[in-house]
Amino acid sequence: MKTSLIKTVSKIALVLIPTITFSMAATAHDPKMHAKKVGKADCSKMGHSKMDMKDPVVIAMIKKCKKQAEASHEKIDHSKKDKKMDHNKTKKIDDKSNKKAGHEHH
């Protein structure tokens, strides 16, 4: 009885320990982890007047800010769509409840 229990525990440990170790190693270098520490780019401080548009640093900053702006626009669009969807749902629900009420009156 004891030996089978020990065997089972050791088997579980054999599977779990490498799994946990590898999954931790995989997340350790996930670039998404960086986001938690650094936060968003502050593009409001990017002065356009003195910029050399051929400088790789300037191009990189513009790319970053453009990407960030597009991402935030998409978020806004999605939230608007969600709201519209909610309205549609409520309309349908309202219609259904009205129909039900109408049937009851008949």
Binding site: V38, K40, A41, D42, K45, V57, M61, K64, Q68
Partner: peptide
């Protein structure tokens, strides 16, 4: 290579992750 030429503002933009 570019780091010594960056201002703190440029650094913040380039190192941020969206």
């Amino acid at each position: 290579k570019r780091l010594p030429t960056l201002s703190p503002e440029q650094y913040q933009i380039l190192t941020a992750v969206e």
